[in-house]
Amino acid sequence: MNAGGYIEMDAVVKKIINEVKRGDQQAFAELVELYKDKVYQVAYRMLGNVHEAQDIAQEAFLRAYTNLESFDMNRKFSTWLFRIATNLAIDRIRKKKPDFHLEDQVAGTEDLTYYSQFASDEELPEDKVVKLEMQEWVQNEIMMLPPKYRSAIVLKYMEDLSLKEISNILNLPVATVKTRIHRGREALRKRLRDS
């Protein structure tokens, strides 16, 4: 996206936020529409489960709505929203029992729901199947990363965000974000090598 696009987008988002602040609850739906896919993606990539992803992503929007007054209009809304979503996802991961059987989960019942998000046809052409297997494999690898590396990698390579934005979202110095990305990358590389 070019700089002009950002400015335009920001202006639209600010206008909507002001409408919501003035009491127009319905205007909030426009914000949800703008960011739902990205927030859902972050949640899914962090949690690896469609139900939890939906739950956390919805919760993130609800929190954003109830805390909208505390949002600093000079900042980027998406950064703030991602921060809420990532924190919720990390909290959810912490609350879960230590789970090192993630492969079972991803390779088992979750497959169907995961596939259904990408595929609408009953019969999948072969290349599509390969693509889905690839997708599943990627998600599986992401899930094997410790959460603190996982969040950095997801924001960097799946949401395509800058180090500065990631540092704002995760509330960490840029140097720490870099280290996490480096370590996440290394861990993924080693797994890729060994698989």
Binding site: A29, K36, Y40, Y157, M158
Partner: peptide, 17 residues
């Protein structure tokens, strides 16, 4: 990692929120 498809939220997502 970058090749992973971008995901879409479920259709009823906005209504649910």
């Amino acid at each position: 990692i970058q090749s992973a498809s971008h995901m879409k939220a479920p259709d009823d997502f906005t209504d649910n929120v």
